[in-house]
Each structure stands twice: as structure tokens, then as C-alpha cells.
Design a protein around this nucleic acid. Sequence first.
DNA 1: GTTGGTGCAAATTGTTTGCATATAA
DNA 2: TTATATGCAAACAATTTGCACCAAC
Lengths: 161, 161
Amino acid sequence: MTSAEALEILEGYLQKKGLKTTAQRRLITEVFFDPRFKHDHPSVDSLYQHVRTRDASVGYATVYRTVKLLVECRLATPRQLGPTDKETRYEPEAPGEHHDHLVCLECGFIVEFENEEIEALQHQVARHFGFAIREHRMVIYGNCSRADCERRPTAEARPTP
Amino acid sequence: MTSAEALEILEGYLQKKGLKTTAQRRLITEVFFDPRFKHDHPSVDSLYQHVRTRDASVGYATVYRTVKLLVECRLATPRQLGPTDKETRYEPEAPGEHHDHLVCLECGFIVEFENEEIEALQHQVARHFGFAIREHRMVIYGNCSRADCERRPTAEARPTP
DNA sequence: GTTGGTGCAAATTGTTTGCATATAA
DNA sequence: TTATATGCAAACAATTTGCACCAAC
């Protein structure tokens, strides 16, 4: 999903709700869907930093409020990847799509994947317990095999050993 | 796992680390593994409340510090069930065991389950991306079919299955 | 007696909110 | 024109920490 498509969805949502399209909301959405940035699962703070490089007058609260709007119209999903992460991180979403995550406990490297067999089994389990599935979250933690694993230790994915 | 077994593991851990076994640590562990309580996935606050009914002099900080110890020796796992939960909740663990969760979005009802087929597929996916699995977290959200669903709107006040 | 533990209150951190002003519709 | 948005600072809520006194070893 491109920034332009996301903006269209956002504007439709705002209109429907009688809310206003502002320069800040457009900028934040644009940055959030920036191809160079959209796989970062950014925290609000990280998004705020990027936004500030393009308009230093934008306030922290506005970023929080806009991210909340993006979540409401399903353009963003809150995630708690790293088992030790304190901040909530957000991921750009195309409505209808879904994927899960593999997270490297050493270097924080994240892989997104989809697996229909697992999804089918989840529905089966849910049905067995009388649940109607609305959504699910699955994160697999492990060690990746990239050559430069360990060389980029990030704060994000480090549980107590 | 009984309170007694948990206590034994904790005391072993404390000894190994040169830390001390105190009445508070014993009490908190006992309450955390109390059979009437151990499936509640309690928050630190909820655990604190229960502990206070048995010793009103125990402080909030001590409960936090003790829970941290329990996590370190793998007797507790931090969870963020409810997509809207603010507080971290903790679950008593028997080392080696594992289960996932079904959470009702309406009433907060939680079912624990295990599914070997899903676990096998997770390993397959991980291998495909060159990851060695260390652990995983899976939560399925949906609507349960219990007769009194909706009547218990908070995740804290949950029935025993 | 020494080292680590506790309770309290104060500090920190991520997030939200009240308010006066600014801006889209 | 009029409702909604913004930026700022203050408020909040969950969690952590500094410190003087206590208690396990």
C-alpha cells in the first residue's frame, strides 16, 4: 500500500466521521507509509523523529492522536514485538492483509510471514472451544542465521537470558 | 506446579545468586501459585491485592521486584493478552510446559490450549527463514459462546472455566 | 557483622488530556 | 462562522529507584 492509497483511505474515514484533513495528518501518514520506513515497525517516538525532519513544528501529541486515527481506520496495527519492549510499536497495514512475525532475539531482525495452514488450524482450535475468531497475533522468537547477526544489537528484542 | 515446588525452584535460584529467601518472597510466590488464583493471569496490582489480604505490610515495590525474580527463574511469564490491556499480566509457568491463549474480546474469558500441529508448522516456518526457534507467543482473539458472555466486561473478573 | 531486602516516597517513562489558539470546512 | 485540530504543558498510570532502616545469612 502506497502513501497515496493510505491517504485516500484516511481522508475517507475522516470525512465519514466529520473530522478534518490537516497538513499534519497528511504528513504523518505519508511518513508512516514511506517505503524506506514502513517495515520498521516504528514506535510513536521514532515516527515523531522522522516527522520532525520534515516539519519540526509538529507536536508529540499530534503524532499520538494521528496514530490512534490510523489504528481506528485499520491503516496501522499496534504490536508488542520484542518480549521486553516497553513502547508500543505500529505497523502499516493494508486492510485485508495479515502476517505474523519472526523476531531474532540476538539482533532484533524481523521477518514477516504468512502461513495458511497455521491460520486454518487456528480456526479449528477456536471452533473447538466455541470461539468465533476475529483476529490473532503470533510471534516466533529465535535466532536468525544472518551473517551480521549480533552486530546490530537493538534494545528491542532482548529478554533476560 | 504446586506452590511448594515453585518455592523450591525459587530458593535454589536465590541461593545460586547469593540472594536471600525472605518471608515476603515466599508469600508472594505462594499466592502466585495458589490453585484458586493461578489461572487468572494476574497483573502485579492484582497480585499485590491478594498478597495484602495475607500480609498488609507488604509494599508494592516488593511485589514488582519479586515478580521480576520469578520471571528470571522462569516461574512466571509476562503476557499482554487483551489487545487493549495496559498492565502487563503474569502467568505461572512450569518449566518445559507451554500453551497458547484464546481470548474473548467481549468478556475477557481466557482459554489456554496446546496444539502440536501448529507448533510443528511454526518450526517449519522458522527453519524456512533460517531461524532456530527459542519460543513463541500466540493469542487468538474472538467471541466466546458462553451463556454469560457480556455480563463480565472486564478481563479481571473472569470465571473459572 | 555484612550484605542484601524492605517499605516508602519520589522519579521515570510512555501516553493522554485540558486549554488557548489556529485552521479546515 | 463554527466545529475540530494543534502545540504546549500538565496530568496520568505503570513501573522503577534512592534511601534509611531491617533482616537473612
